[in-house]
Design a protein around this nucleic acid. Sequence first.
DNA 1: GTTAGCATGTAAGGAGTTACATGATTTT
DNA 2: AAAATCATGTAACTCCTTACATGCTAAC
Lengths: 193, 193
Amino acid sequence: MARRGDTIELAVLGLLHEGPMHGYELRKRLNLMLGWGRVLSYGSLYPALKKMLRANLITEVAATTTPTSRRPRITYEVTEAGNEHFQRLMSEVGPTAWEDDNFDIRFAFFSSTDMEIRLRVLEGRRSRLQERLARVQGELERTQAEVNRYAAELQRHGVESVEREVRWLSDLIRAERGDESRTPAPGAPTGSD
Amino acid sequence: MARRGDTIELAVLGLLHEGPMHGYELRKRLNLMLGWGRVLSYGSLYPALKKMLRANLITEVAATTTPTSRRPRITYEVTEAGNEHFQRLMSEVGPTAWEDDNFDIRFAFFSSTDMEIRLRVLEGRRSRLQERLARVQGELERTQAEVNRYAAELQRHGVESVEREVRWLSDLIRAERGDESRTPAPGAPTGSD
DNA sequence: GTTAGCATGTAAGGAGTTACATGATTTT
DNA sequence: AAAATCATGTAACTCCTTACATGCTAAC
């Protein structure tokens, strides 16, 4: 039922989906991927890996050593069950999926899902942001408004950022829709911006 | 020493600085202020208020009742000690101050600090973001690059957003600097953007 | 040879959420 | 009269961070 903290699990499964990897490397990739903000610590990654091993979602692929006989590193690989679990988590489109972190992770692994899921996640995220915009703008009319210039400026900047993200999502949705078979790459220019 | 979790404390002191308020209202204002993401729950607000009462940072201003004799609400007020603590927290310019949440809170209450502090916080935040940009862009050259179009698009969008925030900060810094006595409001147009 | 980065882990603790519990007041 | 929203709280739990512990390997 995709609880809040399945984020690491999803991320690990997604990365291992691209090929076997050891813990240290997983952490680096993850931090690069979501590095805009919180940084994942060993204290949460390694226990999570252990837990996933016990749950049979991943297996140790024997300790590998690079050419020059380094310290053996424990390389992990997804199992069948792990892949199924990954697919299930990715398909579970619900409130948790639109939250910042969860959305980012899901988006990063979009290549491993169907367009149908992609569209639902993108659209869900977009309406979530639009709701927030509406709520904040409505509330701004009732409250303060003029008092505290800095707080107001922060709000203004926040609204602008969210509006930008909404446009970004709209472009992506449009790209997905017009993608039936042409595949013009998600980063391709689409007119706006 | 401004630990991570002093965020609520700082926020509460900052809001009460503008006038007495009761818990429920504090929560609403806080969520509106930082509402772009996590929402503060009663389970963290009320215990925090209790803790601040014990620490003598705030006092109960007797239960107020509105005209129509409503259920009494416990209204809080900052104490002398509370104001001192607030000023000290705001002046503590250090790594914790540039983190997303902490920065936002500090920025929102900039009116209650000196320009010197404001500049240090703005500049600190800016260099932090620039470091992140440099690190990510450097790392992007070594890793993947072409594999996984969606992950790449997420990175691109992330970089763009951070670059925007850097420009925003630069505008604010410029405004502060040229503010010696003219005070052109932080949201005033400054050329870029 | 010593610093920096690679590599894996554990234990304790912090901060905050969820769920529970209660009840008044306003709106529909 | 019911539903929504105001209003205050507590207890259990979760996730994660910090700090500790260990040792290898590459570069300077």
